[in-house]
Nucleic acid binder design. Structure first.
Lengths: 168, 168
DNA sequence: CCGTACTTTCACGTAAACGGCAAGGTTGCG
DNA sequence: CGCAACCTTGCCGTTTACGTGAAAGTACGG
């Protein structure tokens, strides 16, 4: 029962922990077409290809795809904006390779510093969106409060006497 | 200098506090075309037309348009979703008229209750989006922390001796 | 080795959300 | 009343983010 992905034919991934496009698409809740399109826009690179040129994805790819989807669905960023944010991520990945390529502590510190700056940038973008959204929530809650106040007034009026018009 | 909107010809609005499409568009930061399109989708109704069929907007219209824009830009909702949320708002407006049309406290309570429910619905939608966004912020912050920890380690290493590889 | 399901690239189709233009009517200062 | 600037309703064009085949290759259990 742990084998949800195999379906009918194929073990899913050739032999390693690599998945084919349909499976990753299903895992993150999208379609193979979208994943290919995202790749076409430079949002990710399949990490590997099979003998017959099948796209093969590893866990970091899946994470990345999930992040993309979240940025699109939850944050409402356009793929172009996401491309900006992931240009950062891509640089980070390349930085990861460079990081292990060097032993120079100074170089490593520079790479890590860059990475931190990129994260801070992402956080800023997300936070500003959270704040604006929160403002909308607050405003709507204020309206709700006013409506509830009116309801309370009316309820009291109904319970007691029917005098003059209250908040008008 | 307080007359930013008039431009060259016209007082902007015929005589009352009503504005023409270009001015409201400018005020909320969009184009007349978009405003007309939003109207076409049923997101709002111009509230008034001039003698020559010019669209005329009042302050509540502007508020509504601002809300629409915020939902689109900040919350990232599609116009279709906004239409859903504003179907509520539209009902609210109609409810407003109905509210003043009746004197029956029971009827008024029902109308206010409906309004409150609509607001709650809107708040729920916005809040769930805030939460998902906040999760993304948290995750990114976690990564930032880890990166900073690495930096600290490296800095200590550099300041002291170069022993074995730390967190690896 | 065979059949079926999955995958590839190419290409065209589409819904959403407008942009832009045309042809004609409106406003309103001068 | 004249004319510049703005508005109206079409209507077609464009960008984004995919959907949907078509034609051909691949993976693999039987």
């Amino acid at each position: 029962m742990t084998d949800t992905k195999t379906g009918v034919a194929g073990t899913g991934a050739t032999s390693a922990g690599l998945l084919r496009i349909q499976e990753v698409a299903a895992q993150i809740g999208t379609t193979p077409r979208s994943v290919r399109y995202w790749e076409e826009l430079g949002l990710l690179t399949p990490a590997a290809r099979s003998e017959g040129d099948y796209r093969l994805y590893d866990t970091t790819d899946v994470e990345r795809l999930r992040f993309i989807k979240a940025l699109r669905d939850d944050a409402g960023f356009s793929l172009a904006e996401i491309a900006q944010l992931l240009e950062d991520e891509a640089a980070r990945e390349r930085g990861h390779a460079a990081y292990h390529a060097t032993t120079d502590p100074g170089e490593r510190l520079r790479i890590l510093g860059d990475r931190a700056v990129r994260f801070e940038h992402q956080i800023d973008m997300l936070r500003s969106k959270v704040e604006r959204l929160q403002t909308m929530v607050d405003e709507t809650e204020a309206r709700l409060s006013r409506t509830r106040a009116k309801i309370a007034d009316l309820t009291v009026d109904a319970g007691a006497a029917a005098g003059s018009e209250p908040g008008r």
